[in-house]
């Protein structure tokens, strides 16, 4: 188990290095640079700024300097935001995005498992048909549409009540987090529902369910102890990649709900070619996702003993 974890972590480090290098190359191949904004009005000022930020050096050297700093955990200073270190931007805003993401994932997983199990129990009957219709909606409608609809719903509720029960936008309290995380988790929830449904239907035809029945166990016990636990395995497998989908999907939802998350800075940085912020946030997100996937794999081992010993 330890050797397995170490191996996965090593592979993870290589992945992150690859992400960093690819981002660096892609960024420098895009025409223009961060100094093309209004700051560098004359050639002289531009030259001074280039020296200040090290942009006068050859690209290869810049890469080495960047990698060296990154190894020490320093992503440098933002080009566009006055005197703001990239590390500070991440430290200030990532917790917001992470909270949103974790909450969304929580909704998605609980919802997916519960709805999926329900549809399997009511297979081909009305509850199944209704839920599966919603699932198709959830998968095909983009999150910004749900975000806008969610806000509209909140506005209507609040104005009907005459006071603000759940805030429409902003960040701070738990009630602020409810709607955006629900919206953010919706498509994942729909996906997990489908997965859980087919997985449940597969497990119910397994021989060991027949054995459990022949043992004289109650339907409830068979459902929870024999069917659910085995059916949930594929759901856990897909959770790793889904964390990626949720964190990247979060950018749009953060924008609609005016949430001060890291997503906004990431998008802004790409638009303004803010080299250090692009690099910092990309590498950070990449490392975060790689870590999540590894964590999920380890978690999988706890639920499925067959994975544990290999």
């Amino acid at each position: 188990m330890l050797a397995y974890t170490m191996k996965r972590l090593m592979a993870g480090v290589i992945t992150v290095w690859f992400i960093a290098t690819a981002t660096f190359v892609a960024m420098h191949m895009v025409p223009g640079d961060p100094l093309m904004n209004d700051k560098a009005v004359t050639a002289e000022i531009r030259k001074n700024l280039e020296i200040k930020y090290g942009l006068d050096k050859p690209v290869g050297e810049q890469y080495l300097i960047f990698m060296g700093n990154m190894l020490q955990g320093d992503f440098g200073i933002s080009f566009t935001q006055q005197n703001r270190r990239v590390n500070d931007i991440i430290r200030d805003h990532f917790p917001v995005s992470a909270t949103l993401g974790v909450l969304a994932l929580f909704f998605a997983t609980i919802g997916g498992v519960v709805w999926g199990a329900l549809t399997a129990v009511y297979r081909n009957r009305l509850p199944d048909i209704i839920i599966m219709f919603m699932v198709i909606l959830g998968i095909s409608v983009p999150s910004f549409v749900f975000a806008a609809l969610g806000q509209l719903l909140l506005v209507n509720i609040n104005s009907a009540l005459g006071f603000s029960l759940v805030p429409v936008a902003g960040w701070g309290t738990i009630s602020h987090m409810l709607m955006p995380s629900l919206v953010l988790g919706l498509s994942t929830m729909a996906l997990l529902t489908r997965l859980m449904r087919s997985s449940m239907l597969e497990v119910i035809n397994e021989d060991y369910i027949k054995t459990a029945k022949a043992k004289g166990l109650s339907p409830l016990r068979i459902f929870f102890k024999h069917q659910l636990r085995n059916a949930i395995l594929p759901v856990i497998t897909i959770l790793g990649p889904q964390i990626a989908a949720i964190t990247t999907g979060g950018f749009v939802v953060e924008l609609v709900f005016a949430i001060p998350g890291l997503g906004r800075y990431f998008v802004q940085a790409v638009q303004q070619l803010d080299y250090t912020v692009i690099m910092g946030t990309t590498v950070f997100f990449g490392a975060f996702l790689v870590l999540m996937v590894i964590l999920v794999d380890i978690l999988y081992g706890f639920i499925d003993p067959r994975v544990r010993l290999q």
Binding site: E206, D207, Y208, T211, A212, R229, N230, I303, D304, R306
Partner: peptide
């Protein structure tokens, strides 16, 4: 091989 629950001892 398939008649026992794979995730229970």
């Amino acid at each position: 091989m398939t008649s026992l629950n794979p995730t229970m001892t």
